[in-house]
Amino acid sequence: MLYILRLAMLGLYFLVASAINFVICFARPFNPDNSRLCGWMYSAPALRLLGLTVRLETEGMLAQPNPFVIVANHQSNWDLFVLGCSVPRRTVSLGKKSLKWIPFFGQIYWLAGNILIDRGNAFKAKQAMLKTTDVMQHQDTSIWVFAEGTRNLGRGLLPFKKGAFQMAINAGVPIIPLCCSNYKRSMNLNRWHSGTIVIHTLPPIATTGMTLDDMPALMERCRTQMATCLDTLDAQLV
């Protein structure tokens, strides 16, 4: 019963938050700080409705000057509510073009200044990747990427895609791994306190002087660090 009530309340709140976020984005379209404000609006009240406690251990990321590339694990669609509160200033994300057509959320996502990639068109995808380099180098803006490319559904890290690492090397900016503990298996919305989630960022990984030949080793280093961190976070919560 509590689960159904929470989903109903969350659905109503999503519509309210979307209306507020649309006003924010319409007032200053494509501003790179829109994502932080919209993420907080979707996330912070929703976490209370869901009975979730999120512990942010992101001080290192917040102290890091822009620009940088955030590489995060992607568990499910709940990430909107779980991770929205952790978006730092002047940070946009990389998403597939089809997100633009999701009612309410898609239009806000686009107006918030996030970068949309058409994965089915190699030329347009390449142009979008070039745009991210320009955004980071000349607009004091960081990029958030789910390097797995899809939801892992709480089954551990999937293989990483190259895009985030190629962007970081081309722009010469550091990578900040962001790890969210496994809530997909532990969250129980039928309990009054439905779970505790930890979001932890690791020290920046410098890419200065790297070339694309260094990318496989960089990807493996980042993934190994994140996998170890996630195991530690999950063990702490158990």
Rank of each mutant, 00 (worst) to 15 (best):
M61A: 02
A72D: 07
Y109W: 14
G51D: 09
W40F: 14
T196L: 07
L158S: 02
F14M: 08
G95S: 08
A128Q: 07
R151P: 06
C38P: 01
E57T: 13
L237H: 05
F123G: 11
M215I: 09
V135G: 01
G51Q: 13
N114V: 01
K131E: 15
R28S: 15
L230F: 10
L157N: 01
L12R: 10
A164Y: 07
T208D: 14
E148K: 09
A125C: 04
L49D: 07
G149C: 11
M41G: 04
R55M: 13
T141I: 05
S194G: 11
Q236G: 13
Q137I: 12
M129H: 11
A44N: 06
A227G: 05
S98K: 09
L111S: 03
A235P: 01
A46V: 03
A19V: 14
V82G: 01
A147D: 06
R90N: 04
V173S: 03
W110H: 02
C179Q: 08
H193K: 14
Q75F: 09
T53D: 11
I143K: 00
A125T: 02
A72C: 13
G209P: 01
G51V: 11
F105I: 08
R223K: 15
N21E: 12
A17W: 00
S194W: 03
R48I: 13
M41V: 12
Y3P: 01
N34D: 06
R90A: 03
T196A: 11
G163T: 03
T201M: 10
L52P: 00
R89K: 15
T232Y: 03
T91D: 05
D234C: 14
M215S: 11
V54W: 00
G195R: 08
M129G: 09
Q137H: 11
S181R: 04
V135Q: 02
W144N: 01
L157T: 03
Q166R: 14
Y13M: 04
A19P: 06
I175L: 12
L52T: 06
M226L: 05
L189A: 12
P177L: 07
A19D: 12
R155C: 08
V238G: 14
S186Y: 09
L158F: 03
A8M: 15
A46I: 03
D213N: 14
P45T: 03
P177T: 05
P45N: 02
W110K: 01
F165K: 05
L218V: 10
L218Q: 04
G120T: 12
L202T: 10
A171C: 04
Q127R: 14
Q127S: 13
M167C: 11
D79H: 06
D118S: 11
S43I: 02
L233N: 00
D231E: 15
Y109E: 07
I117N: 03
R223H: 15
L2M: 15
V135A: 05
P32Y: 02
T150W: 13
H200V: 05
E57G: 12
S194K: 04
N182R: 13
V145S: 10
P32L: 05
N188K: 15
A164H: 07
Y42I: 12
L237E: 04
Q64E: 15
M215Y: 07
H200N: 08
A217D: 11
W78T: 08
L7C: 07
L202R: 06
H138M: 08
L15K: 15
Y42N: 11
